[in-house]
Nucleic acid binder design. Structure first.
Lengths: 131, 131
DNA sequence: AGATCACATTCAAAAAATCGAATGAGTTAA
DNA sequence: TTAACTCATTCGATTTTTTGAATGTGATCT
């Protein structure tokens, strides 16, 4: 592994997250797991749009997918990518707030969006942000 | 400063360094200062090419320029950008070696700017890398 | 079986980045 | 002043990325 190829790989990693939608997706996945429909609901993007970005992130080795039935669950390959994002935000003179992960209901395997997670429709349960 | 604009600024920072030539330039500048002619000799790129990338890095707020006569000296606005690069390399599964005291090997064809010229007369200075 | 759901992929047009070439602008030396 | 030097900028062709739209694939349900 020479210097040139190391720099090339590094630049490709940067390129894969040099886009607002990608960063939002990574933040939404956080340290947990998220299915596409969850991201769709959470971020308000169309499914195909999210899938495209997830494909790019997958090819860049940033996320990995797990299939379970007709759902696909995405997870960060290395959660240190979140640190990278926060440090970049700091260098850019701003601050990005992380999405707090909602605790998954013990027996449930589905995603957390209102569509597949009836628990979230209970009053009083909302999405929260934390720094 | 809301979340959307913070993410936008962060993605722009990533975009500005999502390119091998840019990363090489930042590594070459390192924690010191470098004139364009120095980078030209060091990296083997054309002057206009380097100037273009420096302009992009300047607009992204990554580097700042200082003019001294007909020379322009560039410096990192925040050397933490180097940490960011190394962390990204690690996430990409590679390792980038920093340049320390990097000078062209003899016979030296480096620029004659005040910054580099004195070193050129000293014997025994060669191209060195350090991690 | 057909219908529906969750997601992936392809296609194409628009937008942006890349990069070489030429040129401009300011500084200093002759 | 003229010339040479250092760097910045513009221009344009090529390539890449972005993004909406349409469609494909496989799993699940009825």
């Amino acid at each position: 592994m020479n210097q040139t190829s190391a720099i090339h790989k590094t630049s490709q990693l940067f390129a894969s997250i040099s886009q607002p939608a990608r960063i939002l997706i990574l933040l939404a996945i956080g340290e947990g797991e998220a299915c596409v429909c969850h991201l769709e609901t959470l971020l308000g993007y169309r499914q195909a749009y999210i899938s495209q970005h997830l494909m790019a992130l997958r090819e860049a080795g940033v996320v990995k997918a797990r299939r379970d039935g007709r759902y696909a669950f995405y997870r960060l390959k290395d959660t240190h990518i979140l640190n990278l994002i926060h440090e970049a935000a700091s260098l850019a003179g701003t601050k990005i707030t992380s999405y707090a992960r909602l605790l998954p209901a013990p027996p449930r395997q589905s995603c957390k969006c209102p569509e597949c997670a009836p628990d979230l429709t209970k009053p009083g349960l909302t999405l929260q942000e934390t720094g």
